[in-house]
Design a binder for these strands. Structure first.
Lengths: 359, 359
DNA sequence: GACAGTGATGAATCGAACC
DNA sequence: GGGTTCGATTCATCACTGT
């Protein structure tokens, strides 16, 4: 703690991000988690196929005139965060393709040292309704030390334990914040447009801090960082300029019961089912385009295409759809119906490939 | 093709990336796939922002200057790629956290319009031996159109088919390039340090090009882009400055057997299916004049006329128009909205009739 | 109470062909 | 190029309701 500045702990500070950061003492926090505006640049309105309206992020705080303005803002608050961060502290950022490249570049230019980029793979993302792009199913986090030569904390064993005794990878599979976890106003509408799931912050905080450490969130919003920090026995400082959000976060955090020393055991995360698409067998060359599939009794023969579809007679589509069509059945599990005709004429059930890949 | 420049197809051009790009005609390729170097030890080939050459043995460069040199190099070759790219073409980049933020920022600054960032999740990444970070288990790709307002190709149906009839997401699970696919020298050592798996290029090329399109790879390396392009019936241009890599890639690609027209036939989309008018169902007696149509919830009932129009309340017109009118929606796909009430009272979706007729 | 079915919704840079 | 028409387009999750 320096310069006689006090560090206000376990509160949401109401005010402008940069000004408030400037009032904090240097080298005083162990970690920063920042979820800045994404600068989404949405143009029109978007409807679902059922004509319902997609509730977009159109808030004033996400509007910037151009990349230069966004970059200038980014560098200002990142500079202050770096000043406030202890030499052995680390910083987390989260963003999407709209802004994450600006953030990463600024980070590197300011002297931070990137340790990992981490992918939050969303279990249940919003689909792409118009079919014009890939489903945007992830967000990117960046984890960085204050400088290249800095010591930093990484709780390797905790992360490994959280991942069934395998090293924690840089891709994390976590559901969106929905249901009862999502804060709502009196009318039942979501209080904050971009509330992050507690599971995400749980992993972040557990990975790089210990009990009693101070975590700063300069864009506190709905207060997820503070809530998880308190539950895990960490201290926090939140900064938020919207009084409604700040008040809701204070109430939310006040209701949190900190875990005892014993129960600080990591919450088990939902296990992901390995899902294999037939197309990936084609991509990987395990099944060649042009190959022949047949059923157990060799009654039907189907040909494989480069896109992972198959064709049999006039039917073309997935292994499941074509299997159903030839049998005139309402549905069919193509994995257990179709066999690959191998070079020697022997049959190999597709499901065997799947088992091999998943294992 | 402009300025009398010839476009050299299906070859690896040996030479400096930027110089060779400058010799290509503008707006001549349909897609670019670029896997640029990202070790920042390229000093011998890097230029300062003022285009002067960076001295390879000059250790006085600080971190910022290194980044500036890398950025200048990046902007130079990206500018040339943008010139060579057709207006309706798209560009793919791949990188890791060391360079991907520089690449993405440069893309945006040069006027490219990011469509997706895509995560290549490695099935078998190298573990983190020292236990000081998360296992770096992914690389990031960026997919971008030439400008914000540009039309571009996205083979939505092919990507959906490749993913078992679910929309393709932005996170791709693909193994590293190993085993027989990996090119090796006489001593059995891997020929190229970062050879990309063919499965990755298969998905990239299938997603945004059609047969006969030209794909440019300015950092061709081991030639994966050319190999997969040739197999899928696309044309390619590779650029590589290392003669050993270029020669190995030429040999590799020469051995590729292109798939036939059948196996690479484009995935049929609904739009390309033979157009069926609702009236033809009435003409053929599949739907009787006077029959009743209703929606899934039996909220509305409409009567069928001999001319293929339907009426519901005061609304009369096509299945699309009346469907939109009763829902007070701007539009409606009548095929997937209306069901025929059959003799036994059961409902049959009109789209099922259409599928039967088309098949 | 269990289970099935329904409806709502999530950081989204989300037409194209034709006259 | 601008205006108009046609028609194509969604996955996982969870709260809630009804049987």
């Amino acid at each position: 703690m320096g310069a006689g500045l006090e560090i206000p702990l376990d509160r949401i500070l109401l005010g402008d991000c940069i000004e408030t950061l400037r009032a904090l003492p240097p080298a005083s926090v162990h970690a920063v988690f920042a979820d800045p505006p994404y600068n989404l640049q949405l143009r029109g309105t978007l409807h679902r196929p059922d004509h319902s309206l997609v509730d977009a992020v159109d808030d004033a705080w996400d509007q910037f005139t151009d990349f230069a303005a966004y970059d200038a803002f980014t560098r200002e608050w990142l500079t202050e965060c770096r000043r406030v961060l202890r030499k052995d502290g680390t910083l987390w950022l989260i963003g999407s393709y709209h802004n994450i490249f600006r953030l990463g570049t600024a980070l590197q230019d300011l002297g931070f040292w990137i340790l990992n980029d981490v992918i939050w793979r969303k279990a249940n993302p919003m689909p792409n309704f118009r079919g014009r792009r890939f489903t945007n199913a992830h967000e990117t986090l960046i984890w960085a030390a204050r400088s290249e030569d800095a010591k930093y904390r990484f709780n390797y064993a905790a992360m490994k334990a959280l991942n069934d005794d395998l090293q924690m990878r840089s891709d994390w599979y976590i559901p969106l914040c929905t249901g009862n976890e999502r804060l709502r106003d009196e009318a039942g509408n979501k209080l904050h447009p971009t509330q992050k799931p507690e599971a995400l912050l749980h992993r972040v905080i557990l990975s790089c801090t210990q009990k009693g450490d101070v975590i700063l969130d300069p864009f506190s919003g709905s207060g997820t960082t503070g809530a998880v920090a308190k539950r895990l026995g960490r201290r926090f400082i939140g900064i938020e300029r919207d009084p409604t959000y700040a008040a809701a976060a204070e109430r939310r955090i006040a209701a949190i019961q900190p875990l005892g020393d014993v129960e600080t055991a990591p919450t088990p995360t939902r296990k992901e089912q390995p899902r294999i698409a037939f197309g990936s067998l084609v991509e990987r060359g395990l099944v060649q385009p042009g190959a022949t599939l047949t059923d157990r009794h060799r009654r039907w023969a189907a040909q494989v295409f480069a896109d992972g579809t198959i064709a049999c007679g006039t039917a073309r589509g997935s292994i499941h759809g074509v299997g159903a069509a030839v049998q005139e059945a309402p549905s069919c599990n193509g994995w257990t119906f179709w066999h690959l005709v191998q070079a020697d004429g022997a049959l190999k059930l597709l499901d065997v490939f799947r088992t091999e890949l998943a294992g």
